[in-house]
Nucleic acid binder design. Structure first.
Lengths: 191, 191
DNA sequence: GTCTTTATTGAGCGATCACTCAAGTATATA
DNA sequence: TATATACTTGAGTGATCGCTCAATAAAGAC
């Protein structure tokens, strides 16, 4: 005999929690915050997600999946090099995002010193993203869009590093992030 | 009539606290941590620094002052462009530093969402550093080391963004930060 | 030495942390 | 409708948070 079902949409709650964690970080988000925003009492929260860390891990996965999906779709539409050139503008433009800075980078920076599991997970997701970038550079090279004398993995590491810096800079008021994004894209034309 | 003096070296304690905050962040460092590492009981701690936030602000200032001083000395020795080209290698090399990532950036990323005073302070110090970079680019341009068609402020913003990304990347195990640093330096030769 | 002034100490404050659980409520099956 | 099952609720857990303060120890001025 089947009992009642939860009254909430678990996927929507994970997305909402992701946005809160993304903005406020791990230590900066209390259970009170989550309970208030997700409209869940403690009991329901723990029945649904087990712990704060478990939910955070779910939001990291969701964040990484969406990132890969967005980049893949972009490459499908524009081709590898154009996708890489467009990405910098996109990640700082979208005003519906809860923060400009990368959630994976923020998580890694906050928790790495304490050897927290979530820092490892964030680092792994960043490695996945780097691999994505490398694949696009490799495809661009095969297509002759960039010169043959470049190491795609090295280009990917530099590109990801530039994006991390850009997205952190984009949180500041005294920095013209659009100019930096344009310059990063322009660099790709010189390869 | 003069009473006894403190038994501790205040400047040394600030430097020690800076290293702890730098590694572990604001929320990641408890008063217990500080009391244990600085060997101060709560009473002495509050007599010396007033509050956790007040000490953190002192460490931010110390961090920023040292950064400016180091860069200025480097430019004095090598000239503006060479200093800018050397800086990336230096900030990821020095194995005596408590962390690779920039303390100002970590502070800003952690606390900006909550409009914390310390985030403002960190942002101001980052603006000072950016101004330092711009001055060096301007001097390099005057000296003919880089082309006349570049905006020093724009170059400075991009350069700082690249450094932030580099220093965050340098915390990761799966990234060859030395290659990224070399590539950043190489970009400066193409100006 | 005595006195005055400040440093040092550590127990403990109220608030908040992540989290638990027993009691109450709603729903699908029978 | 009756029952079994799971969801919902919120008071409350011990631990830790940043911080206070009265008591004690120490050092210069006389």
């Amino acid at each position: 005999m089947m009992p009642r079902k939860p009254s909430y949409d678990r996927d929507a709650l994970i997305a909402q929690a992701r946005d809160i964690f993304w903005r406020q970080g791990w230590a900066g988000t209390s259970l009170k915050d989550l309970e208030r925003e997700l409209k869940l009492k403690p009991g329901s929260f723990y029945a649904a997600f087990g712990s704060k860390d478990a939910l955070y891990a779910l939001t990291l996965e969701r964040y990484a999946q969406d990132g890969v999906a967005r980049l893949t779709a972009l490459a499908e539409e524009l081709g590898p090099l154009a996708a890489l050139k467009t990405q910098p503008r996109i990640v700082i433009d979208s005003s519906q995002m809860p923060a400009r800075a990368c959630m994976l980078a923020k998580t890694y920076a906050e928790l790495q010193a304490k050897d927290h599991d979530l820092a490892d997970k964030a680092g792994q997701h960043m490695a996945e993203m780097k691999h994505c970038f490398a694949t696009l550079f490799r495809r661009a090279q095969s297509a002759g869009e960039i010169g043959p004398d470049h190491d795609p993995d090295r280009l990917a590491a530099r590109y990801q590093s530039d994006l991390l810096g850009l997205r952190l800079s984009a949180e500041r008021e005294d920095v013209n992030a659009a100019e930096i994004a344009a310059d990063i894209a322009a660099d790709l034309d010189r390869l």
